[in-house]
Write a protein that binds this DNA or RNA. Structure first.
Lengths: 194, 194
DNA sequence: CGAGAAACGAAGGGGGTCCTGCGCTAAAGT
DNA sequence: ACTTTAGCGCAGGACCCCCTTCGTTTCTCG
């Protein structure tokens, strides 16, 4: 239940550090878990009071740990974004297009379960600068490699691709199959035409 | 200022009819105009009180004319959707793919200035059943024609295409040029591969 | 085990939204 | 011109949210 108890979370200079006292640490983790769920369901604008309630903690405790909505948001999503970034590294062995495609697929499957991630990208939230940079750092090389190999169209930027693929995550599909079909179209649009 | 004074609005059996008394009619139109602007800017969840304020009318008057948010929403967007539907008819003369493409382009340019339209489609709002049907009735034939001509890929439904293209409208692009590039990718994804 | 400090929750101020009841105003119709 | 009545705004109840203050609880460490 508690967030994969890592010794301490990444140093971004922004994220708050995990508190030392036992009760405080318990609440901190409960808040992080609750926030993850609520942000995922309702998007980046979700009610902080709702998050505190779900964590079984007073709103004041939330504010004590995360002075602003941004702090909480980044604390929650940095893990996910890091995972996305790390994954990009494991893709070097694949053929250029396959690497790009599979990373983008992962990206969508992340973003659809996490409406907040979609929001952050779609609305260019400043709250998300750190995460945005990490995603760029991870994904752009993949696109550029595919472009150099002539597999991805050369006239688009990584941002363009990200927007297109992120758009696919915005709708709430009824069947999984539909999302696959739509994503397939998007990917075809990114591919270089023969 | 008043909404293109049509004799009476379309009969959907849902939209409220324009009131008979002069003052009432004035307020009705002001509300519709305000709603159009506010929905466009803030999306389908915009504050009704804000709309009433902008119309220079009391919130009670809004409720008197439009008992629910849905009533107001449909009253506002039916016109737009009708325009989109009408346009599809004028496209018969074009080559199958060109007809589809230009309709989809129009669709995007509508949806981007009207966040509420995007919302309605992305979230499958039940509030939007009528409009949704009209859009389908207008656009599906265009897709099917392009598919029959072998110009659009055959393995997708109209819904799929709509979601993909609508996704492009979701992000708020900083430059117009970027939106063009992203839309171009989406359209390429819809085209049949040679 | 017993301070002292750290963290907690209750509560409340300020603001916003949705929606309704009610007495008054001003348009319609004779 | 005068009555009728449709339509109006005011004001307020019932929520919900953001954020802060403050007295109390509970952990930690000597």
């Amino acid at each position: 239940m508690a967030t994969t108890e890592s010794g301490g979370r990444a140093e971004t200079g922004f994220t708050v550090s995990r508190p030392a006292r036992a009760d405080a640490r318990r609440n901190f983790d409960a808040l992080l878990d609750a926030a993850r769920e609520v942000f995922a369901a309702e998007g980046a604008g979700a009610s902080l009071e709702g998050i505190a309630r779900r964590a079984g903690v007073n709103i004041a405790t939330l504010y004590r740990n995360f002075p602003t909505r941004q702090h909480l948001f980044e604390a929650v999503y940095l893990d996910e974004v890091e995972a996305l970034a790390r994954m990009a590294a494991d893709l070097d062995s694949l053929e250029p297009w396959d690497a790009l495609e599979s990373w983008l697929r992962q990206f969508v499957s992340y973003a659809t379960t996490k409406k907040a991630l979609y929001d952050a990208i779609a609305h260019r939230a400043e709250m998300f600068v750190t995460g945005r940079e990490m995603i760029h750092a991870a994904g752009r090389p993949l696109l550029e490699r595919a472009q150099s190999a002539g597999r991805a169209r050369a006239d688009v930027s990584f941002d363009d691709v990200l927007f297109l693929v992120n758009g696919v995550s915005g709708a709430n599909f009824v069947q999984e199959a539909q999302q696959d079909r739509v994503l397939a179209m998007a990917l075809d649009g990114i591919k270089a035409r023969k």
